[in-house]
Each structure stands twice: as structure tokens, then as C-alpha cells.
Design a protein around this nucleic acid. Structure first.
Length: 561
DNA sequence: CCAGAAGTTGCTACG
DNA sequence: GCGTAGCAACTTCTG
């Protein structure tokens, strides 16, 4: 059963192809490819068969393919991954295994440190080729360098393809004269000059040659065996896996007028059912190819009038692209210190604030409802992320965005290194966005799309019967109303942690000061003009105004809406 | 180099 | 109910 040759379809513009400049760049040409290799194909992201260039490459070069996924015990113990995302990952792996079984293959799940795994398996399986998809995240780059070194020492080739984003970031970097725009529009403009991203390729049509291995040794674990209590998971709203990803994609595309009229700012952060696609977790793990989504959109756009970036669905994919791009070329992108695009702001260190925010005890029902949905379900609307991120940082609590980033990292199904960091910098007005005086109201913002507070009722049951008039600011309800609805503020539900109307004004002036100070540092710096908002040195000279501790006491009853 | 425009989606008061 | 001005005024990018 010799596998049939694969041919890459739709590779219209070779210059846009999947090849990287540091690897064999000849276009894939199946006719003169000798399929002699014994290859480990290493799944990390891209947990899919469709539009998987690096997997396709492996297939074209190899006689035998060992499709592996490595579960690093260190990662299992140390990583900030909540139960819901573990469940999503394991489901995705199980689905991937099902897809491979269709191809006469199976997923080989190995528990161990990647270096040790490769050192062992290269010899055990007599491997002479390793293929995987490139990854732009710093920890992944280091890991992959190490594996490449080990492989090279053992005379094993390593061949990779990009595949996680629409465009190859290295290619865009070169075409854009190594410039890294910090505004969405200029990035989109740069892409427009480059042209369309590659079209997706089909899943492999052949079946894999049978391996002589004992699959019982390489089973996908369940939650319990990696130390996760399944009862800690929330309701299963978004099952993991490629099958579900493609089903969900097509389900959304059934309503073409919805697809074409999509405008992100007009979707609701607090509807009871998601008002957006919720394809983000599938994009994050690569269960869904971004190019597949993109070209599916283009197909529908071609037929009718449609919304445009930045608000359209295409615009959302381009934001993902933008943040991946900046993240790939910016040192310390997920940190304040040493991050050249991040404004150096001295946030307050108030662990009790961060804790209250994380545990949905801020006393603002809209904020607490969002944080509850986040913790229990693993997904919240983008604008809901705006509201709680602004609240934690520049709007109300003036805590570091790094703390919020950690919490999102733990809870979000779609937690994505570049996107999480970029969005936190955006919302805290540390990068990309600078109009710090535009502050979301933790009371008013949610009212616009949920007048009755049904979202709050769902996620904060203690307020279930509270009158709509008071539900966004229950501390303003007369005591007898609170009693009648069995929710006395300060007893059954917390008092608000700050007086938003007071603190938000104080924080705007603190932000103004922080901006002025970071401006000073960068002009000091002489020729360091490239790294705009300051260097990390600014931590050295804390301004004396630093500890002006603003009044953060809870408001009295007269706070208005 | 400089001026002006634009920037994914704020809030409140007011007509 | 909706559009708009005022709020105080930021940075990046373009021409």
C-alpha cells in the first residue's frame, strides 16, 4: 500500500509559499521527491490534518511517519493551564487521533521532556527526518533550537514550515523592510502591498504506511491521570478538536448575511449566548487553520456587500496576524521590563485587588459576572475582556497588566501568547492604544446591551431576582429592597471595591503623569529613538509622586449612573 | 521636519 | 431615542 503522491494545491504565488528562508526553499515537487525518510512529525499547535503544510511536507518526503505529541511533565505541573483548557487540549488530541486513524495511522503520545524524547526515539525508530510547524513564541523557539541541535548531532534533518498565521512572519518582515508597525492600519497596509495570503491546502489524501509499534505505550491520557479533577471543569460548551472546529466554522457560515454584516463593536459582550464566532480556541490550538477561515470568508465576501476591517470578521483575523507579527519580533513582549514597545508604568502592587478581581469579588456585578464566566466557561466576549482589563489596570484598580495576563493565561481556552500580551498592553494603554482618558464604566458599559441585567443574573445567582433598576449597582438599592431580594450588600454580595467615578478620574491623572515621565526617559536616551515608550531603565528613578495613594474607599450610596 | 489626520468599539450631558 | 459636543488630550503614521 504505497502511499500516493501528494500535490500541493492552490500554491498560486510561490513567493508567498510556506517555505522559510532558512530551510530548503525549493517548491515542493512531488515528482522528484524520494520517499525514503523515516520521519517524526511533531504536533504542537496545528492539531489538524487540513491545511497543514509541515505535515504535508513530511508526508511527501517520508516512507514512514511517526506522528507524535509530547506531554512534558514539567509543563503539566508548572504551566498556568486551568482545567477547561486541559480538557480542550485532550479532546483536540483525541480528535486528532481519530483523524489519523482514518489515515491508517495513530497519534503517538509521549510523556517526557522533549529533548529526552527525541534523543531516545531518534535511535529507537531509526529516524532520519523531523518535521514540525514553526512557532514564534520565545519558549518554543528555544525548545525547537535545542531539538534541532540534538537532531543535527545525530545526523537527522529538521525541516519546518510556517502554518499558524495567514502569512509567514519572517516573509512579511523582509517585505516590509524589517519594520514593525505599531498601528493596525499600517500593518494592514503593509500586508496589502504583499498580496493575498496562501490558500489552504487540503488534508492528505493518502493513507500512512503501517508502523511496527505498540500503541498501548502511547495512549492519550485522561484528565485524572494528569492530575486534573474533572469536576473542576465547567459545562462543556466548546469541545476541542478539528472536527468540531470545522463543524463550527460551517455552522457560522450557514448565515451568510450575518457573516457579511459582522461588525465587532456592534456585537454584545454580555449576551447569554456568544454573539461572535468563538472560533478563537480552535485557532489557538490550530484545530482550525486561519487561512481556511480567511478564504472561506473571501468566498462569501465575493458574492455580496460586506463589512470591512477593522470591524469585519476579516478584520479580526488581521488583528490576530498583527499581534502575532509584533510579538514575534519584540523582545520580552509579554512583560513590562525590557519590552521596547511597552510604556513603563509603575502600577500599584495590590495583591488583594488582583485577588478580588480574579475571584469575582469586586462588587461590580458586570465585572464579577464576566470574571465568573471566564473562570467557569473559559471564554468571554472580546469587549468583556476590554471591560475587565480596563477595570484591573488604568480604569479602576491600577494594577499591572501582567497580573491580568496571568489570570487570562490560566482561564482562557483561547489563551494565545502574543494575543494575550498585546491585548493587555492595548487595554492598559501601555502600547498600541494611547487614549487613556477613554475609560470603560463598570456600571454603564454593560447596560447598553443588557438593560435587564440577564447576564448578571445568570452568572451571579445571588442577584438573580434583583430589580433591573439596581442590578448594575446594587449598593444603591434601598436596604429594604436588598432584604426583599435576599441580597444585602456587604453581606450576601460585596460592596464595590472602589468608587469608580472618583478613582477613574484619579487614575486618568496618574496615567497622564506616567506618560509624561516615560516621555522624559525616552528623550534622555538620545539615539534610542527606535524603542519608543522608554527603556526599562525607568524603573531606576521612581518619581516622588509615586506613592500618592489615591482614595480607594468604597463609594457611599449616592454614586450615579 | 512638521502639521494634520486618524486611531478596532468611552462616558455624560444636552438638544 | 439618537446624534453630537465636551471631556482632556494621548501616539503613530502619512504626506
Amino acid at each position: 500500500m504505497a502511499p500516493k503522491r501528494e500535490k500541493i494545491k492552490n500554491e498560486s504565488d510561490p513567493s508567498l509559499g510556506f517555505g522559510l528562508k532558512n530551510e530548503p526553499s525549493e517548491p515542493i515537487n512531488a515528482t522528484d521527491m524520494e520517499k525514503t525518510a523515516k520521519c517524526i512529525y511533531w504536533f504542537r499547535k496545528a492539531l489538524r490534518l487540513h491545511d497543514n503544510p509541515s505535515l504535508m511536507h513530511a508526508i511527501q518526503k517520508s516512507q514512514y511517519i511517526y506522528p507524535i505529541f509530547i506531554l512534558d511533565p514539567w509543563f503539566v505541573q508548572k504551566a498556568k493551564v486551568g482545567p477547561n483548557r486541559w480538557r480542550f487540549l485532550l479532546q483536540s488530541l483525541n480528535d486528532l487521533n481519530e483523524q489519523l486513524i482514518r489515515k491508517n495511522s495513530r497519534l503517538i503520545l509521549i510523556r517526557g521532556n522533549p529533548s529526552a524524547v527525541f534523543a531516545e526515539k531518534i535511535k529507537e525508530w531509526d529516524i532520519n527526518l523531523i518535521c514540525f510547524e514553526t512557532d514564534t513564541e520565545p519558549y518554543a523557539k528555544l525548545r525547537d533550537q535545542e531539538i534541532t541541535k540534538i537532531a543535527t548531532e545525530l545526523n537527522v534533518k529538521v525541516e519546518t514550515k510556517y502554518g499558524h498565521t495567514l502569512y509567514n512572519p519572517d516573509y512579511v518582515y523582509k517585505k516590509n523592510n524589517e519594520k514593525i508597525p505599531l498601528q493596525y492600519q499600517s500593518f494592514v497596509g503593509a500586508l496589502a502591498k504583499i498580496g493575498d495570503p496562501p490558500k489552504p491546502i487540503d488534508e492528505p489524501s493518502n493513507v500512512f504506511n503501517k508502523l511496527e509499534i505498540d500503541y498501548d505505550l502511547y495512549k492519550i491520557p485522561d484528565l485524572v491521570s494528569i492530575g486534573i479533577d474533572p469536576s473542576a471543569c465547567g459545562p462543556l460548551l466548546f469541545p476541542g478538536g478539528e472536527t468540531e472546529a470545522l463543524r463550527r466554522l460551517e455552522d457560522k457560515f450557514k448565515n451568510e448575511s450575518w457573516i457579511c454584516s459582522f461588525e465587532k463593536p456592534n456585537t454584545s459582550p454580555n449576551s447569554l449566548a456568544p454573539s461572535t464566532t468563538v472560533l478563537s480556541p480552535y485557532l489557538k490550538f490550530g484545530c482550525l487553520s486561519a487561512r481556511k477561515f480567511y478564504w472561506r470568508l473571501k468566498q462569501v465576501y465575493a458574492k455580496r456587500k460586506h463589512s470591512m476591517p477593522p470591524v469585519s470578521l476579516e478584520g479580526q483575523l488581521l488583528f490576530r496576524e498583527f499581534f502575532y507579527y509584533v510579538g514575534a519580533f519584540t523582545p520580552n513582549f509579554n512583560k513590562i521590563e525590557g519590552n521596547p514597545v511597552c510604556r513603563q508604568i509603575k502600577w500599584d502592587d495590590k495583591p488583594e485587588y488582583v485577588k478580588a478581581w480574579k475571584e469575582a469579588r469586586t462588587g461590580f456585578p458586570f465585572i464579577d459576572a464576566i470574571m465568573t464566566q471566564l473562570r467557569t466557561e473559559g471564554w468571554i466576549h472580546h469587549l468583556a475582556r476590554h471591560a475587565v482589563a480596563c477595570f484591573l489596570t488604568r480604569g479602576d484598580l491600577y494594577c499591572s497588566w501582567e497580573k491580568g495576563q496571568e489570570v487570562f493565561e490560566e482561564y482562557l481556552l483561547d489563551q494565545d501568547w502574543s494575543l494575550n500580551a498585546a491585548n493587555w498592553m492595548w487595554l492598559s494603554a501601555s502600547a498600541f492604544f494611547h487614549q487613556y482618558f477613554r475609560v470603560y464604566s463598570p456600571i454603564g458599559f454593560g447596560k447598553k446591551t443588557d438593560e435587564n441585567g440577564d447576564y448578571i443574573r445568570k452568572y451571579i445567582p445571588v442577584l438573580k431576582t434583583f430589580p433591573a433598576k439596581y442590578i448594575f449597582e446594587p449598593w444603591t438599592a434601598p436596604l429594604e429592597v436588598q432584604k426583599r431580594h435576599n441580597c444585602v450588600i456587604g453581606k450576601d454580595y460585596p460592596r464595590p471595591i472602589v468608587d469608580h467615578n472618583v478613582i477613574s478620574k484619579i487614575n486618568i491623572s496618574r496615567m497622564k503623569k506616567a506618560y509624561e515621565e516615560s516621555k522624559l526617559v525616552s528623550t534622555d536616551d538620545g539615539d534610542d529613538k527606535k524603542s519608543r515608550p522608554t527603556s526599562s531603565k525607568s524603573t531606576k528613578n521612581p518619581p516622588k509622586s509615586e506613592k500618592t495613594s489615591p482614595d480607594t474607599r468604597p463609594p457611599s450610596k449616592k454614586s450615579k449612573n
